[in-house]
């Protein structure tokens, strides 16, 4: 039996990548057919590293995260293939009880909408304390004390007085802090943040991102940041994986990607960010609609919308061509994209 969380290897002594997703395939069975929501996704995260997974809704970025967490609704969802290795062990093959213990202790998750993600009928302190009571068997009072400490740590003013308040009594930003406090309560090695700032005001967004970055630095967590917002990731991410139609279309260290995208989709995304220095010019928009997962375009899923399209794009699925180091692009004509000749 493989014990993932403790045992001979012990924490931090594993030599490979902390979390590896390899060729993951997830399908949804619907009345209209099978939707391949995740179609061969591979990425990895190391301690202290931040991976940003970028993509629009339906690209498969959240489904991948839910599969890692083991909170995918099955059915209709189904893992059709691939592996998710946490500290070298494929957690998809673990019995449910062991997977449960990894949740919260090893890998934990922050959701987009903290108002609906927190249980409305329990005090926030109780919900944080529950982590200690279930995973560590702490007493009520101990757990509550730790909950207050955590609320302090995520910078909730007057934590001691607010520990018995209910989620709806907090502002959006404070609620997300509580969500984060709950997620980091047991010092997980991987934190997945699924659109953690999308529901928040811009000023609050920056605070939350800052908080996440600080917490990560303090505890050397691996952070998977899922977002559709290029602006959010620039400052905090180490590397980026761009997803489109259930596949990763580009991976790159964050600065390379911003400076010189190697996939037409990434390029389109970057060009559609409004910029002050280009005021007055028409804003670029990727033409067409996101793909329908039930009727995926043949060949490269992006080809109907792609300005670099050639004939073979509609027939041959592009692999993730290695460019240099950790860079890769799933475009047959990535050189033209990098060169900027359109």
């Amino acid at each position: 039996m493989v014990e993932v969380l403790s045992g001979p290897t012990g924490r931090g002594s594993y030599s490979g990548a902390l979390l590896e997703v390899e060729n993951l395939q997830v399908e949804f069975h619907t009345r209209q057919g099978v939707a391949k929501a995740v179609n061969g996704v591979t990425y990895s995260v190391n301690p202290g590293e931040t991976l940003a997974v970028l993509g629009e809704s339906g690209s498969g970025k959240s489904v991948t995260a839910q599969t890692i967490m083991g909170i995918l609704d099955m059915p209709p969802g189904r893992v059709a293939g691939g592996a998710i290795r946490f500290r070298g062990v494929d957690i998809l093959k673990l019995p449910e009880e062991q997977r449960r213990r990894i949740r919260g202790e090893g890998i934990s998750m922050v959701f987009q909408d903290a108002l609906s993600a927190l249980n409305p009928v329990f005090p926030v302190g109780w919900q944080i304390a529950e982590m200690f009571r279930i995973h560590r068997g702490s007493s009520r009072s101990d757990a509550k004390k730790k909950a207050v400490e955590l609320m302090d740590r995520v910078r909730i003013p007057g934590a001691r007085d607010r520990v018995n308040d209910f989620p709806h009594q907090f502002s959006g930003g404070m609620r997300q802090r509580i969500m984060i406090a709950m997620a980091i309560a047991l010092d997980p090695e991987i934190l997945i943040a699924d659109e953690p700032t999308t529901a928040l005001d811009v000023t609050v967004q920056a605070q939350i991102m800052g908080l996440l970055a600080d917490l990560q630095r303090d505890s050397n967590m691996g952070l998977i940041l899922i977002t559709h917002d290029l602006g959010v990731v620039a400052d905090v991410a180490d590397k980026i994986a761009v997803m489109y139609g259930g596949r990763i279309v580009e991976t790159a260290p964050v600065h390379d990607l911003y400076r010189n995208p190697a996939h037409p989709y990434t390029k389109g995304l970057l060009e559609s960010i409004p910029r002050v220095d280009l005021k007055g010019q028409e804003l670029y928009a990727i033409k067409g609609m996101p793909p329908n997962l039930l009727e995926m375009p043949s060949g490269c899923a992006f080809h109907p919308r792609c300005p670099y399209r050639r004939e073979d794009c509609a027939t041959a699925v592009p692999p993730l061509y290695p460019i240099s180091g950790t860079r890769g692009s799933a475009c047959h004509y990535w050189r033209e994209v990098v060169d900027g000749s359109r």
Binding site: I71, R101, R103, F111, D113, S116, A117, M131, I134, M182
Partner: peptide, 18 residues
């Protein structure tokens, strides 16, 4: 059952019973 907070509860690593 499909609500977000139940998903959170599962993600917290609580037992199914709980």
């Amino acid at each position: 059952r499909r609500s977000d907070y139940v998903r959170t509860a599962i993600a917290k690593g609580l037992t199914n019973r709980r």
